[in-house]
Design a protein around this nucleic acid. Structure first.
Lengths: 338, 338
DNA sequence: CCCCACCGTCGAACCGGTTCGACGCACGGC
DNA sequence: GCCGTGCGTCGAACCGGTTCGACGGTGGGG
């Protein structure tokens, strides 16, 4: 493999001159630059990433910590990963994907060994164990998901409170008076997924404000169970005319459940979910939904992270940004049956 | 950040002695080793990955090239990624995930710059453009998916021919005489996804051998279309008693289609799919299926790759390994209605 | 005509590890 | 008592880049 020394020799210049010709950090005569470029082409030279990292203390790699927890609804995760990977590349960075179960150890490893210039954490919990490690690391970090304590990191998340309000308010305006909300499984909440509460509490408040009845329940993340639960909920609340789903698995299960019950949306039941448009398209889910925008969140996190890496504004003010929920209308809401 | 020089100073030894104490590559007195370890603990020393890579020409990172093509059925990809990431970590490697659209350029970049010790290619096409690049690279590569030319790489794939035969033979034994096979979308085939042909041709031959009728069709990868196609196919072949699905989206769509037609599996129609058990569980697909085993394939690829990296047996004989299809019985096959 | 500034290039040091050869010392065998 | 062996340690070189300071040459201004 050719080194910059080889390039220099072939071009008949010193190593430093070759380096400057390539980086453009000092002025170089046109003639020498051309000779260097020719040598690069001839030898097929590519700089050695390790050597460059050592010299510059920049790896041009960002770490992506994704935890795949059992009973998690996996398909959604892929969209975050894709958004992050693609936008990182656009900004000149590669992505080190870490799915190690012990996220704290993994984070410590990749930051301490300086394999990465910064880190994106997915699936951040209310009291995430990885945060203390991240704060002591010398690289910046961006989170997708809102923890209890945001100091020292940039945070991006959907505005789940507003999402809850929008869901309720949309159906209220159409004349609904009794709703059911199906959330993520309870163990997701226990693990610190505060967003479940954020949406549910806001929805409950908004319903109270409007004098509506809102029944809440945790749904399973797997299919036979969540389908049965939906049946049970519809049985238990026969007067409910609207169904809110903060649970992808429940949304995926709903078509069969409705068919089995001989119900149609929106004629017999208005439905609003909370998932990404890509998810809706893949499974042809015909329900209006709050767009969870994983790709957008991922892009925002990466953009901010790279900005912080490159502007060295490590100490600059940190940002907590919520994207406001957008309701994608797929025609599954209407005035309730009178 | 502490360097090995700091460790050496605190321990009162030379840098090389500290290095040997940590690597164990030369004998070191217990007393010195303890002093070095104490210094490591005190300073929180972690070796710098770039420096180590430069010195040893080993990065302990493997590249994972995954192409996310439009109209691909994405959820399946995640399982490959997970299997690969997890098994890599178990073997001491991290994973650089590359989803760049231009796979050849990405591959060239990460191998030439020596960011990785080896590479796993997903979604390998019959005539994959990335293969020539991989062959000229100095790192070994493992593929998931069978290309036309396997020289210089290790290849792992499901035995799609056998899968096709097993599907047909299973229904033949039960007494079926007319089947429909729904494959992946045609553009997947055009892009070089030869596995579609492998399964379909073998199924066709086996059917001919048994004197059965086999209708074949390409199904869409998205939902409203594939559901309509399934309806059309069942309309077009009313005497068919068995349905074979080499198309995840079709499998996901089938429950609603059957419900809409008032059919049940296996009473009215026997069904065999080809997807992973994890996929079946997530979407509660009640159909027997050929296990596509993405995690197992990923693990095999990584194991072989790491073996080749570490045994430096770059020139050793390359392997093309097919895993034999296992039919997971979920009770969706039975003798046809007489 | 001289001096200064600037442009283009070079040599050397440095980043933080690993590894080779050498060296001092203790110990055992004759 | 001497020599050879082997163990534990050290110094120095090396991996392949980047970057700083210096230096020679040229051109312009006074």
């Amino acid at each position: 493999m050719a080194t910059i020394g080889d390039v220099a020799r072939v071009a008949g210049v010193s190593r430093s001159t070759a380096s400057y010709a390539l980086s453009g950090k000092r002025s170089i005569s046109d003639e020498v630059r051309q000779r260097v470029m020719a040598a690069v082409g001839e030898l097929g030279y590519t700089p050695n990433a390790g050597a460059r990292a050592l010299a510059t203390s920049q790896t041009m790699v960002i770490g992506l910590l994704a935890q795949f927890l059992p009973d998690e609804f996996a398909p959604a995760m892929l969209q975050y990963i894709l958004g992050i990977s693609d936008s990182a590349r656009e900004l000149g960075y590669d992505v080190l994907l870490v799915t190690e179960e012990d996220g704290t150890r993994a984070l410590k490893r990749i930051t301490d060994s300086r394999m990465v210039d910064g880190v994106v954490l997915l699936n951040v919990a209310e009291d995430d164990e990885r945060l203390p490690i991240l704060r002591t690391a010398s690289q910046p970090g961006a989170l997708v998901g809102l923890p209890g304590d945001c100091t020292g990191v940039d945070v991006f998340d959907l505005d789940f409170e507003e999402a809850g309000r929008v869901m309720v308010e949309t159906l209220h305006r159409l004349g609904h008076r009794e709703l059911v909300l199906v959330s993520q499984p309870e163990h997701v909440v226990e693990r610190g997924g505060a967003y479940v509460w954020r949406l549910q509490n806001a929805a409950t408040e908004q319903a109270a404000l409007r004098g509506m009845v809102l029944h809440t329940a945790f749904g399973a993340a797997q299919q036979p169970e969540v389908g049965r639960q939906l049946h049970a909920l519809l049985d238990a609340h026969p007067r409910a005319t609207g169904l809110l789903l903060n649970n992808e698995a429940a949304a995926a299960a709903l078509p069969s459940v409705l068919t089995e019950r001989g119900l149609r949306a929106p004629q017999d039941l208005s439905v609003i979910g909370r998932y990404s448009d890509a998810f809706a398209r893949t499974f042809s889910l015909p329900y209006s939904s709050i767009e969870s925008a994983p790709d957008r969140l991922g892009r925002m996190a990466v953009r901010q992270l790279v900005d912080r890496i490159e502007r060295k504004a490590r100490a600059g003010p940190h940002v907590v940004r919520f994207i406001s929920p957008e309701l994608v209308d797929r025609g599954s809401t209407a005035a309730p049956r009178s």
